[in-house]
Computed example of a mutant assay.
Amino acid sequence: MGCCFSRSAGPNSPYPGGVPDASSRAINPPPLSLPEGIISSNPQAAALSHHRRRRDPRPLDQHINRPLRRHQWTSTQRVWTRRDLVKERAEFFDTRVVCRPEIWQTLHAALQVLWESNPEDSQDEDNALATAQTILTAAEISLPTGNLVNGAYDALGNLYALPEWVVADPENLADDRDPDAKGDTSTAGEETAGEDDDVDSEEAERRREEKGKGVLDEREMVTLRARLSETGRDIKVNVAKTDSVRTVIKRITELSSLPSDKKIRLAYMGKMLKENSSLEAQGWHVGHVINALVFNR
C-alpha cells in the first residue's frame, strides 16, 4: 500500500489522472495564446494574435517592387522656379552621406531622365519612364509603391528617402522672372551662358564629324567595353579618349546592329553622360565598363 501512496500525481507524472498543483504551474508557463474575452475586447491584442497565427511565407530577399510611375504634386509651402529646383536638387545629391553613394548616383541618373522629359508628350513620357526603370532595375533598386516619393530600397534593404521637389516639378512651377519667387537670380546669366556654350560645342562637334576633320592618333586609341541593357551583351569599340560621347554612341550602335527604332544613352558610375563631352572629361577610366542603355526613340 505504501508504494501506491508514493506515486506522483503531478502533470509530468507518467501515470494518468494527475492534477496540476501550484508547483507545476510555476514550472510550466501557460501557452502564448490569449483568452478569447481579452482578444474580442482589445483590438491590439486581436491584431497581435492574428500576427502570431499568420506569417508572410515570402523569403526575406524578395522585396515588393512596383513599376515606376510619375509623381504629381502642387506646392503649397513656397513658390518654386526652375532655377530653384536646379540649384537645390544639385545641393541635395551633393550632401547625401548615408547609405550607399552609388545608389544615390543611380537615383540621380534616373531622375535626370525624368526631369528632361516632356510629360505632355505621351511617347516621350513612356520612353523616359522605361529608361529610368531600366536604370533602377540594373542597380537592383526596388520601389514598394512605384512612386519615388514613398521611398526606394537597395538590394540590402536600405531606405532612400526623396522629397517631392527632388522627384518631380510642381504643377504650379513659377517663371524665373516671377517677382513672387524667392529664388536666387544672381546666377541666371551664368546658367544661360553655360547652356549656350553646350549648344555651341555640340554644333562644332557635329560639324567636325561631318567634314571628317577629326584625325585620330593611333597612340590615343583605347578599347572601350559597353554593356547593352537590352541583352547584357558587351560591345567592344576602339575610341580615342577625346572622342565625344555622341561619337562613341554612333560606333556602338553600328556594331550592335540595333533596329532603327532603338537608340542608346551611355551611363557611367550611375550618371548619365553628356553627349557633347568626352568620356575622359566625365571621369571615365580606361578598362571600366560603360552601361549602354537601349530604349525606343
Results as ranks from 00 to 15, higher is better:
Cys3Gly: 06
Cys3Leu: 14
Ser8Val: 14
Ala9Pro: 02
Ala9Met: 04
Asn12Arg: 06
Pro14Phe: 13
Tyr15Leu: 15
Val19Leu: 15
Asp21His: 06
Asp21Thr: 10
Ser23Leu: 09
Ser23Thr: 12
Ile27Lys: 04
Ile38Ser: 15
Ala45Phe: 08
Ala47Ile: 13
His50Gln: 15
Pro59Phe: 13
Leu60Asp: 09
Arg66Asp: 00
Leu68Thr: 02
Leu68Asn: 01
Arg69Ala: 04
Trp73Tyr: 08
Trp73Ala: 04
Thr74Leu: 09
Ser75Thr: 09
Ser75Glu: 07
Ser75Met: 01
Gln77Trp: 01
Trp80Tyr: 14
Leu85Lys: 06
Phe92Ala: 09
Cys99Val: 12
Arg100Asp: 10
Pro101Trp: 05
Leu107Ser: 09
His108Arg: 10
Val113Tyr: 00
Pro119Thr: 02
Glu120His: 02
Asn127Pro: 00
Leu136Tyr: 03
Leu136Asn: 02
Ala138Asp: 11
Glu140Arg: 08
Glu140Gly: 01
Ile141Lys: 06
Leu143Gln: 07
Pro144Lys: 05
Thr145Leu: 02
Leu148Lys: 06
Asn150Trp: 00
Asn150Leu: 01
Gly157Leu: 08
Asn158Gly: 12
Leu159Ser: 06
Tyr160Trp: 14
Pro163Phe: 08
Ala168Met: 02
Pro170Cys: 03
Asn172Pro: 08
Asn172Met: 04
Ala174Lys: 05
Asp175Met: 14
Asp176Met: 12
Arg177Trp: 02
Lys182Trp: 11
Asp184Cys: 04
Thr185Arg: 15
Ser186Pro: 01
Thr192Phe: 04
Glu203His: 10
Glu205Thr: 11
Arg207Thr: 06
Gly214Trp: 04
Val215Ala: 10
Arg225Ser: 14
Leu228Ala: 10
Leu228Phe: 07
Ser229Glu: 06
Thr231Pro: 00
Gly232Trp: 03
Asp234Tyr: 02
Ile235Asn: 00
Thr242Leu: 13
Val245His: 05
Val248Glu: 05
Ile252Trp: 09
Thr253Tyr: 09
Ser256Val: 02
Ser257Tyr: 08
Leu258Phe: 05
Leu258Thr: 03
Leu258Ala: 03
Tyr268Val: 10
Lys274Arg: 13
Asn276Phe: 05
Ser277Gly: 01
Ser277Pro: 00
Glu280Thr: 14
Ala281Pro: 07
Gln282Met: 11
Gly283Asp: 14
Gly283Trp: 06
Val286Phe: 03
Gly287Met: 12
Val294Phe: 03
Asn296Lys: 06
